[in-house]
């Protein structure tokens, strides 16, 4: 845990000093004048999750504010990824997984029987730990979502969606002349940005990110972090991260999970400067994890 966290930081301070500064100031701005007008995009109440007999999450209550970045941190196996996967019902695909409690997006219950999970997932995009481009061309990777959801009337419109998504993911310049080459041929960082482009092509309202930088090198990580900061203007983002520096850099709100319990959730600078729980303090100072 210490190794993991320290290495990116030292490299980062050389490679991306600017990024850290902007992230920190940006976050302060929102904190100062955004507190009152923040609306809640998603909320979880009394959430329990079981894998078979084993309980993974215990009574989680958490609000995700709109157009901001919420970071979920905590040691391995603490349930942060499980929580994230509840938000777009990805846990449905796991055998023996049971979710009790209440999760709402814009006041509507996402575990409602009448709710269409396909529609839900179009509203809540997800980016995974390991870049997972489909074994198709770059273009087809991004066009896949709009195609299945029928978002484009014709080819031109589809082209436009693909271009703008790649543009917003900061990838267009690098791949504009090889949109037909396979997405798996890109570098790790590019692949992850492709996956982000793929997610935003469906114009979701929320983007979930499950340790999106853990398989990337520091420079690629810096790129993604910048991108997350830009995306915040249009999307609500929830990010799981192992890396506390990353949480500090990109998020406005941080939730600390431990052994399936939400220990503490607060504005990011509060958590990192004056945590109220000693477990949080122990974790962020590197005493365990």
């Amino acid at each position: 845990m210490n190794m993991e966290n320290n290495r990116p930081e030292t490299v980062k301070s050389v490679a991306g000093g600017m990024a850290i500064d902007t992230a920190v100031t940006g976050e302060k701005n929102l904190k100062m004048d955004g507190t009152e007008e923040t609306t809640i995009k998603m909320s979880a109440r009394n959430l329990d999750v079981f894998y078979g007999e084993k309980q993974a999450l215990f009574g989680i209550d958490l609000d995700v504010p709109e157009q901001s970045v919420t970071a979920l941190i905590g040691p391995s196996g603490c349930g942060k990824s499980t929580f994230l996967r509840c938000l777009n019902r990805m846990n449905d695909t796991i055998d023996g997984c049971r979710v009790d409690g209440d999760i709402r997006i814009d006041q509507s219950d996402i575990y409602d029987r009448a709710l269409d999970v396909v529609e839900l997932r179009a509203r809540i995009g997800m980016v995974f730990q390991k870049p997972n481009p489909f074994p198709k061309s770059i273009y087809d990777n991004v066009a896949y979502g709009p195609k299945i959801h029928g978002l484009a009337q014709d080819k031109d419109e589809l082209d436009e969606i693909v271009r703008s998504s790649l543009e917003r993911a900061g990838l267009l310049k690098e791949v504009v002349d090889r949109l037909d080459s396979p997405g798996t041929g890109l570098s790790g960082g590019q692949q992850q940005r492709l996956c982000i482009a793929r997610a935003i092509a469906v114009s979701p309202e929320v983007i979930l990110m499950d340790e999106p930088c853990s398989a990337l090198d520091p420079i690629a990580t810096a790129h993604i972090e910048e991108l997350i900061d830009e995306l915040r203007e249009n999307f609500t983002i929830v990010i799981v991260t192992h890396n506390m520096q990353q949480a500090a850099r990109v998020s406005q709100q941080t939730a600390f999970f431990h052994l399936g319990i939400l220990v503490e959730c607060n504005a990011t600078n509060e958590i990192f400067t004056s945590p109220s729980d000693e477990r949080t303090q122990g974790y962020i100072t590197g005493r365990y994890g």
């Binding site: 269409d116 396909v118 299945i148 959801h149 029928g150």
Partner: peptide, 12 residues
């Protein structure tokens, strides 16, 4: 309505 129709088709 279009979106709902499309989803119906997809589910079919």
């Amino acid at each position: 309505n279009l979106a709902i129709q499309l989803r119906k088709k997809r589910y079919a």
